[in-house]
């Protein structure tokens, strides 16, 4: 394609990408370099229904003047990135000195919001992604082996977890695993432990969130793999059968290599999706035991004082994390693409 033609061809998407991706990301980056203005405080006498007290209030007029002079806030360089809410190098240094063992250091580091969120986010991503691939492939192979008449209904039922809105899906499970819910009560009876609570133990909460993650994402992998299975050519399969390959060997040496590009696609999507894990933490009210980067952003923005600088910084670090995660997969794809003949 000529460069000129290519340019006109790509222009509409380019404009859309600049407007809806580059500009917002750029503005979030600029925000992450700033902190709020110094608040001008003064003391007033405040009388309410329960008596009068001396109270500190924000001098709105004076603060407004500062705001008008510098609408973005005070420039803070990278201080938002290095402060306690994010990379927290100096806090980690102090903790390292104070700890008597690596386990003690980890325990202390888990009070730092960014590292605490990172620990859960990465564990979630690296546990859920491979399980979704495996389970999705297993369901796809299973459904593909069914007689035709049963496939439609089975596909429909298998897709349901993906159709349920994540927040609602996690809320339903949250009630089911409650100690008075059907799953929670059943577990207590099975384990013979009336104090067993899936919501109280950090380990069980992590497992519950990951099980939820696999449950809600497996249908996506399933439907992509199932579509891919429809395109597996008959000849190599028949040839493999004549060569005496078992069902497992046919899957391992014919079907899986054929589905590899789809597996790469699902891995990319799942790495991105799982790194942004958010809804189950809110739905399961799991913030005592597990937080994620997206949950932190949400946490900075609600409450009566929205912390835009901290939220912007966490957003930038999330983007950076996604880039780091996806790079190996993308590099692999790029090498394959080049090898295939250009």
């Amino acid at each position: 394609m000529k460069h000129r033609t290519f340019f006109w061809f790509i222009l509409p998407s380019l404009i859309a990408m600049i407007l809806f991706i580059a500009l917002p990301v750029g503005s979030v980056f600029v925000q992450s370099l700033h902190v709020e203005h110094e608040q001008v405080l003064r003391t007033v006498e405040n009388c309410g229904p329960f008596g009068c007290t001396e109270e500190t209030v924000i001098d709105r007029a004076a603060t407004e003047e500062l705001r008008a002079a510098q609408p973005l806030g005070r420039f803070a360089g990278l201080s938002n990135y290095t402060d306690r809410n994010h990379l927290a190098f100096s806090e980690l240094g102090v903790m390292w000195e104070r700890s008597d063992s690596f386990a003690d250091f980890t325990r202390r580091a888990m009070t730092l919001p960014f590292w605490r969120a990172m620990a859960f986010t990465l564990t979630f991503t690296f546990v859920v992604t491979p399980l979704v691939l495996l389970l999705g492939l297993a369901i796809a192979l299973g459904v593909n082996a069914l007689p035709r008449a049963f496939r439609g209904p089975t596909i429909f039922v298998s897709l349901l977890p993906m159709i349920v809105t994540p927040l609602i899906g996690s809320l339903i499970l949250f009630w089911m695993v409650d100690s008075r819910g059907v799953l929670g009560a059943a577990l207590q009876t099975l384990m013979n432990d009336p104090n067993l609570s899936l919501k109280a133990s950090p380990t069980l909460t992590w497992i519950m969130l990951m099980v939820y993650g696999v449950w809600s994402s497996a249908p996506f992998a399933f439907i992509v793999f199932y579509a891919g299975l429809q395109t597996v050519p008959e000849e190599p399969l028949e040839a493999a059968m004549i060569d005496g390959a078992s069902r497992w060997q046919r899957i391992r040496y014919v079907v899986i290599p054929h589905l590899m590009p789809l597996a790469v696609f699902i891995t990319l999507m799942q790495l991105m999706d799982n790194f942004r894990v958010f809804e189950p933490i809110v739905g399961f009210q799991a913030q005592a035991n597990a937080t994620s980067l997206s949950y932190n952003i949400f946490n900075y923005l609600r409450g009566d004082a929205a912390q835009f600088g901290a939220a912007a910084t966490t957003s930038m670090l999330t983007i950076l994390g996604v880039v780091v995660l996806l790079t190996p997969v993308l590099m692999r794809t790029w090498r394959d693409f080049n090898r295939k003949g250009h």
């Binding site: 709020e36 203005h37 809410n85 806090e91 600088g309 901290a310």
Partner: peptide
């Protein structure tokens, strides 16, 4: 206190 101080600094208090 450390978490509060970090937030209060960024908010200009």
């Amino acid at each position: 206190e450390a978490a509060y101080v970090t937030a209060a600094r960024a908010q200009g208090f």
